[in-house]
Structure formats: structure tokens, C-alpha cells
Computed example of a mutant assay.
Amino acid sequence: MATRKAGLPLMNIVRTKGMPILEQLKLEECLLRTSSDNWCIINDGTNKPTIVMGISGKPAELVEINHVLEDKIPVIRRFTGGGTVIVDHGSIFVSFICNKDAVPDVQPYPRPIMSWSSLLYSKVFQETDDFRLRENDYVFGHRKFGGNAQSITKNRWIHHTSFLWDYETRNMSYLKLPKRAPEYRMARDHLDFICPMKDYVSRLDFINKTIDAAASHFSVKSTDFDEVKLISDSKFTPTSRLVTEEELEAAAIKFDQ
């Protein structure tokens, strides 16, 4: 796939399936901080249920630690901000890593980047009247199906989204109702707050339409994953990491005191 359009910046499209989410996060941070190219990373599902927290997330406030430890659910602290999600084979991940001058009409701040992304995804969901951006979430009506996180550096930014194409109901029991939640949530529990994308679009259609939407902003070029992996195998040290069992246990003890 190659769609070269005169006057538009080049974006490399990387498609993969089932990549472990920690590996994906490490790859993205490396591309953000060591590459000078624009990237769109699309990962269709991850290998096993994993909780992912934002860079400042506190496990005791966000996850049911005893339940997580008992079932050996990995917990990751990612390099970007945003909230806490549990991801698995039903998740689809899309990340845009851009030079600031590649999208010069977008100020390099969270709200303008969110607005830009919502316009891009409005093309993906143009046949769905219920799609909108609510606060920092993508929703159908009043139910969330996409959570976003960002990191902004001097010359570049990343905007990545975990889309809930489908979910396992039991996985939601690992998450607590966060103290800081969007107003439109109105204290609803997870199952009343979220909805699956599968009721609106197929996995393949969503991925293809996302690439088509990206092609309206960029000249897109398909890039082999192995080629990108060579970049990420550099000496760069990522900050996304697995939270250890000892850290989780200590957080639970401190929280109970």
C-alpha cells in the first residue's frame, strides 16, 4: 500500500496483530523519541488480558489489587498520561506519532490534538450518527468505546487509542471506579459505561477506514513491522514497564492503612 499525495507529509503505516501491549508501548516511545518520521501503528489485539495505567496512575486507587494478584493479571505503567484500561484480544490499538510541523494547523497541546483526532475518526464512523468526542473519550451516544492518551515532546507528539471492539465482562471486575472520572460517566459502573464497537463496525472495516482517513491528512506508506523493529532495537531505554508484584502488594498495604 502506498498513497503518495503531493504536498502532504509522509506517514508510515505499520500493521501488526497480537503484539504484547508492553512491546507496543516500548516501540512507540522509541519512535517518538528517536525517529524523525511520522508513524501510524495499528495493533489488532494483544496476547493476553493486561491492565495499563497512565504514567501517574496509583494502583491501589485504580485496580482491585488482591483480585489482580490472585489471577496474575499483568499491570503496566505506560509512558503517556490518561486513564486506566484493561486490554486483551478484543482491543484494537491505533497510535499516531507525528512531527509538529506535519500537522501545522494543530497546536501541540492535548485538547487541539484530541480535536484533530476526533475529526479523523469522524471520517471512520461517518455512517454512525452516535459517534462523538466526549471530554477525552470516543463514544457512541453516552457510552465509551475508545480511551486516549498522549505525550508531547519538543518537536513531536503521540496520540494513542485503545478501541474496545469487544470485551470480556469478567475482566471489568479488575478495575475500580476511578476517583477522577469524566462528568458524563455519572458514576456508572464499567458495564453501564462502555460499549463494544462490534455492534457498529467489523474489525477489518475499522482498520481499513482508519488508514483511509489517515490518507486524507498524509501520504501514507505501508512499512513492514520487521523494519520498524530494527529501529526499536536501538540502545534507547523505554519508560513503560511492568509493575512488580512487590509494588502491588506494597500499594495494597499502604492503601489499607
Rank of each mutant, 00 (worst) to 15 (best):
S56G: 12
R33S: 09
N38D: 15
R78P: 05
C30N: 06
E61D: 14
S35G: 02
T84E: 10
R78C: 10
G81L: 05
L32P: 02
I86W: 03
R77H: 03
C30W: 03
E64P: 03
T50P: 01
V68M: 04
P74N: 12
L32Q: 11
V85T: 09
I42F: 04
V87N: 02
P49H: 02
D71V: 04
R77W: 00
T50E: 00
T80E: 02
G54Y: 07
K58S: 15
T46W: 01
G45A: 12
V87I: 10
G57R: 09
E29N: 09
K72V: 09
R78K: 04
G54H: 06
E61G: 06
I73F: 09
G54S: 14
S56H: 13
T84F: 03
K48M: 08
H89L: 06
G45R: 06
I76E: 08
E70Q: 15
R78E: 11
I86E: 04
N43Y: 01
I42L: 14
R33Y: 12
D71I: 01
P59K: 10
D37A: 14
L31G: 12
K48P: 00
R78N: 12
T84V: 13
L69W: 01
V85Q: 00
V68Y: 04
G45C: 08
G83I: 09
M53R: 04
I42C: 10
E70F: 11
L62C: 10
R77L: 05
G45D: 07
V75S: 08
M53S: 09
A60H: 10
L69D: 06
D88L: 05
T46G: 02
G90P: 05
V63G: 00
D44P: 04
G90M: 08
L32T: 09
G81P: 03
R77G: 00
I76G: 06
C30L: 02
I51H: 08
G81Q: 08
S36P: 00
R78F: 09
H89W: 01
T34K: 13
C40Q: 02
R33H: 13
E29Y: 07
N66D: 15
A60P: 00
V68A: 06
I42A: 10
S35K: 02
G57D: 08
G45W: 08
S35Q: 06
L31Y: 12
E61C: 13
T46V: 14
G45H: 07
T34P: 04
G81F: 05
N43H: 07
R33K: 15
I76F: 06
S56Q: 10
G54W: 05
C40V: 12
N38I: 07
I73P: 00
N43Q: 07
S56Y: 13
G45M: 11
A60I: 03
I86S: 08
L32M: 12
R78I: 13
H89N: 12
L31D: 04
C40L: 13
W39T: 07
G83L: 09
R78W: 03
S35T: 11
E61Y: 07
V85C: 02
N66W: 01
D88N: 15
V87S: 02
A60F: 04
I41C: 10
D44I: 12
E70H: 14
D71R: 14
E29W: 12
E29R: 11
T80K: 00
